[in-house]
Amino acid sequence: MDAVRAAGWGLGVNFALMIVKLVGGIFTGSSALIADAVNSIGDVASALAVRGALGVAQIEEDEDHPYGHTKAESIAGLCVSLLVTFSAGLLAIETAKRLGGELIVPGKIAGVIAAVCAIAKEVIYQYTHRVANRLRSSSLQAVAWDHRCDAIGSGFIAVSLLAAPYLGSAAPWVDPIAAICICVMLMIAGIRIFSATARELMDQQADAEMVNEARQIASQVGQVIDVEKLRIRKSGLEYFVEIHIEVDGKISVSEGHRIGHDVKDALLIEMPRVRDVHVHIEPHE
């Protein structure tokens, strides 16, 4: 499955970069690079959570879960956002405490390491973002934006550390300030992801484009006079549709039942991401 593969690539890249940043930060004395490494540790934990949730989400419905287990994917997205926000807040506090102590200027090698990490993160972002958009996966979207934030953060660190030796008396302040800026950026991204995923868990109506597509498909089914009500909610990677259609009130119950099944079949065929459709028949006045 594409979602599991994307999460697996993210896990592998994050683990490798975590080691590179941590070792590089320790040997060069860069607090910004160490902060970025700690963030990568959070990314590894997030990737593991998302992979596990995607596996749970694919379990078929059972007696206790008649709608399946797809919400696990959304819960993972929410956990990722909380982890990103909380970790960034702690890093910002710890970095701010160091401002009162002795500050050093890290070697240029720290900037080179950060630049390589930024490029790697941007590549994995582009890949994950494409998969997330195609599947409309909130947890993968959360992970993708985490990759993008990391890429921007590492790029910012690279520019700052490479330029620091030429900034005179301001040079020692570049590294901790860069670390704090990264933390603030991560907190903003985490809050944004939390908001989007929370709306999904609250069964927010699907976007207008998808609703209009479903309405058009149902309206084209024979003997459907009008679509009275249409609700579409997202659950993990899939959608559930509740639709009320109007038909001629003089037809038989059997005929109305057949039309309802035709509408359901049309939606399931034309919209592969739809898991189930509940059709309610109304007489047209």
Rank of each mutant, 00 (worst) to 15 (best):
A7P: 01
V50A: 09
G256K: 01
I245P: 03
A266I: 06
I113F: 08
A208H: 13
V50Y: 01
D207G: 13
A7D: 05
V224Q: 08
I225G: 06
S195N: 12
S195I: 11
E255C: 01
A189F: 03
A88V: 02
N212E: 13
K97Y: 14
C181P: 03
G222F: 09
C149V: 11
A170R: 03
A178L: 04
I225M: 14
S254V: 05
F27L: 11
K121E: 10
P66Y: 03
V116C: 14
C183T: 10
R233V: 15
G10P: 02
V247R: 05
V184Q: 07
Q205Y: 01
V274S: 14
F194S: 12
V263D: 02
G8P: 01
E270C: 02
S139T: 12
A266F: 07
S252A: 07
A151T: 00
E255S: 07
V80Y: 14
R233T: 08
L54P: 00
G100K: 07
A47T: 04
F156V: 13
D203I: 00
V263F: 04
I93E: 12
D248K: 02
G249H: 02
I188R: 13
I281P: 06
T28Y: 09
V4F: 14
V38T: 02
V84Y: 08
L48H: 04
V277K: 12
D276F: 04
Q204C: 02
G155Q: 05
I19M: 07
D262I: 00
D265Y: 06
L230W: 07
F156S: 10
I104V: 15
A163W: 02
E63L: 06
N14A: 15
V221W: 10
A76D: 14
